[in-house]
Design a protein around this nucleic acid. Sequence first.
DNA 1: AAGACGGGGCC
DNA 2: GGCCCAGTCTT
Length: 354
Amino acid sequence: MDASSETISARLLAWYDAHARDLPWRAPPGSPPPEPYRVWLSEVMLQQTTVAAVKEYFAKFTRTWPEVTQLAAARDEDVMAAWAGLGYYARARNLLACAREVAARGGTFPDTEEELRKLPGLGAYTAAAVAAIAFDRRAVVVDANVERVVSRLFAIERELPAARPEIRDGAETITPDARAGDFAQAMMDLGATVCTARDPRCLLCPLSEPCAARAGGDPARFPVKAPKKAKPARKGRAYWITRAIGGRTHVWLVQRPGSGMLGGMRALPDDGWKARTDGHGEAPLAGTWQAAGRVNHVFTHFSLELHVEMLAGNVAQGPGEGEWWPLDHLDDAGLPTLFAKAARLAVAMQEDAA
DNA sequence: AAGACGGGGCC
DNA sequence: GGCCCAGTCTT
């Protein structure tokens, strides 16, 4: 690290001392790190999502499973249900697999980036972040915030994702040996509150003086990104099947396969919309079906128009594998948002009919 | 190297 | 409607 890089990290850390965000999984600047379990849990939850979305889930998980060994001992379906709505459900499957590996090691997380990287669900970013934040190891932590800050600081013209190695090199040159965790979190806070994607607030930025993009006059131009591919549109159907058991209405839920879209999650039966574009599926039971409405939902690589169909009457037996779930406890089923939306439609339709 | 993989908030 | 976000895994 040369003199100007020292200036950059020193300026950033001084700014962080005064402006760090107060977050549930975080220790204040300059203080001992939080428990590795909490750092790891928050970092996995934060992958590809936002602080606001994670807070409630972090509170629920740490309340339900205060230690990694308790999470390791939890039932898969309880963890998946607790994760429902947060998305990218492979993260929850890897979270549980990782907790169980750590529990098998005696409940202690490895304390080096290299060893952390071998755990399920810990890629380059998360291994570096946990090493830095939980264990104060020097590690080059590069997330979307850091990509934005570094690409502006050095005015990197190469477009993402091809610019990743160049950005990583830039991050490496400014990462200090001391206060690695604070530095990593400072970069993220700067990206989240000052060096924002739209309308960066350069007047408040501790790095505005050395920033090449700022000098160039149009910092928001960075990072340069490759054009996105168009999202295909799909159509499909979901089925709402009910039965009264002991005077309580139950709805038929299935469990989705362990891999693929919404993998391992409880769901309404559907027609396999994943593979369809025409929206013409076979109903799982014979009978009189009634349209309950339509859900529009956008996934990462396609959008879906899901038509919800209700079966009139009281079914004696559900189709295939599944379970009758009491309607008054449907919130506990842990339906992913797509099916939670579909269920809301069906419930509203049933209440109208009643 | 490219694609699969959620969801919500903002403009 | 498009863009963005504390990325990882598979092929």
